[in-house]
Write a protein that binds this DNA or RNA. Structure first.
Lengths: 218, 218
DNA sequence: CCCGCAATCAAACGTTCGTTTAAGTGCACT
DNA sequence: AGTGCACTTAAACGAACGTTTGATTGCGGG
C-alpha cells in the first residue's frame, strides 16, 4: 500500500526512469483510448515495465489519473492567476490569458483531452477535487473580468457562464482534432499562433459586443 | 445474433416498452458515468429488465451506443441544414443556427455529453462513422458561412476551425455543468434563452470582428 | 384449441479487470 | 563481506465484464 517516495535526492533515484515511462505512456494511452479502455497490463507493456510497477509507483490507477490532472490543472490555474492580474483593462487581461492558456493547451494536449473527456466521471474524490479547481477559476474570472465588465452597460455575464465558455473555445481545436482530421485530412490547419489570435479576437470582441450597449445590428 | 426488428406495425409491438426503458436508462447512465463504466447488468437492473434483453433489442453494447449517437447527430445535421439555408446574410444564418442547435442540445443533454466525451474512442467503426457526420457539417458551414465571409476583408476562417469552435461554444454550458454546479451551487444560472442569445451574440460579433477589416482596438 | 413467435428468463461461457502477495535482484553504504 | 533498501518480478486473487445459450412464458391468428 505504501506508495514509493517522491522525494528528490538531488540526483534522480534509481526508479525514476520507470516512473516517467509509465507516466508518459499513461498520458498517451488515456488521451487516445480513454481512461477506462486502457488496462494496467497494456500500460505496463507499452511502458516496458512489469505490471506491478504501476501501482508500486502510483498506488492505484485512480491515483495515476489524479496526478495527471494535478499537473495540468495547477499549471492552468497558475497561468490564469498570472495573466488575469497583468494588464490594465479586462479586455487586455482576457486576451493575454487566452494566448497563454492556448499555448499551455497546445503543449499538453493529452492532459487537456483527459481532463475534458473525464469531466463526467462520477467518482466522488475526483469530482470534489475538480470542483476546487473550478472554484479558483470562477473567482479569478469574476474579480478580474466579469466585475469590471459589469460597468459596461447593457447585459452582464457571470463567471459561471464565462469560465466554461472560454475553456471550451480554447480547447475546441484539440478536442475535435481527431474527428476533423479524419473528415478532411487534405487541407492545412492554421498554426497555433494564428489559432490563439483568432480565439482571443472572437472572445474579446464577442463578449464586448454582448456586454456593451451600442452595437450596429448584424 | 438476429437483432429484434424495428419495424413499426402502426400500434407498438409488445416489446416496445422494454426497449424504450433500456434506451432511456442507457442515455442517463452513459452520460453520467461514461460508456465504459456502465455495465450491462447495471443497465438492465436500472431499466427493470433481464440482462439478455439489452443484446436482444440492440445486438451489442456498441450498437446501443451507435443508436444513441445516430439519433443525436442526424437531428443536429438536419437543424444545421435547415437553419443555414434560411436567412439572407451569413450572420443571420449563423445566429438562427446557434439558437436552434442550443435548443436541441438543451433538450438532449445526455446525447450531447455522450457524443463529446466519447469523441476519442478509437473504435474504427465509430470513428469513421463520426467522421461522416463531421464532413457534412464542414461542407454546410463552408458553403453558407465561411465562403460568404471571405469577401469581408481582412482575415478568413476555415470551416475546419469554425465547426469545432461553434459546437464547443454551444456545448460549454452542458459540458461543464456538473463541475460548475458543484463548485458554486448557490447562484442561479441564466435560463436557456438568455444563454443561447449570449452565445449567438458572442459568436456572430466575435467572428465578424475577426473577419472584417476595420475594428476599434480593444 | 393450439400453433407460432416475440419476449423474457436464469445460468453459464471465457476473458479481462485492478490489485495484492511473496520472492528475488542488485546497488549503496558500513 | 554483509546488511538494508529500492526496485523488479511472476503468479495469483476475486470480481466484473460482454456475450451466448436453451428453456419458458404468454399473447394473437389459423
Amino acid at each position: 500500500m505504501h506508495e514509493a517516495s517522491t522525494l528528490e535526492t538531488g540526483t534522480s533515484p534509481r526508479g525514476t526512469e520507470s516512473r516517467e515511462q509509465i507516466f508518459a505512456c499513461a498520458l498517451r494511452l488515456f488521451a487516445r483510448q480513454g481512461f477506462d479502455r486502457t488496462g494496467m497490463r497494456e500500460l505496463a507493456r507499452e511502458a516496458g515495465v512489469n505490471l506491478a510497477m504501476v501501482n508500486y509507483f502510483f498506488g492505484s490507477k485512480q491515483n495515476l489519473l489524479r496526478e495527471i490532472l494535478d499537473t495540468f490543472f495547477s499549471a492552468y490555474i497558475a497561468i490564469a492567476r498570472h495573466e488575469l492580474h497583468s494588464a490594465t483593462t479586462p479586455q487586455l487581461r482576457l486576451r493575454r490569458f487566452i494566448r497563454a492558456a492556448i499555448a499551455h493547451f497546445a503543449e499538453h494536449q493529452d492532459h487537456l483531452i483527459i481532463a475534458i473527456t473525464d469531466l463526467h466521471h462520477d467518482d466522488e474524490e475526483l469530482s470534489s477535487y475538480k470542483a476546487r479547481w473550478a472554484e479558483q477559476m470562477l473567482h479569478l474570472l469574476e474579480q478580474q473580468v466579469c466585475a469590471p465588465l459589469r460597468q459596461n452597460g447593457k447585459a452582464d455575464i457571470s463567471a459561471k457562464t464565462l469560465s466554461p465558455l472560454l475553456t471550451s473555445m480554447m480547447a475546441s481545436r484539440f478536442l475535435f482534432a481527431p474527428v476533423i482530421q479524419r473528415a478532411d485530412n487534405a487541407s492545412v490547419v492554421p498554426d497555433i499562433d494564428a489559432y490563439s489570435d483568432m480565439i482571443a479576437t472572437v472572445a474579446v470582441y464577442g463578449i464586448n459586443a454582448f456586454t456593451a450597449s451600442a452595437q450596429e445590428p448584424l
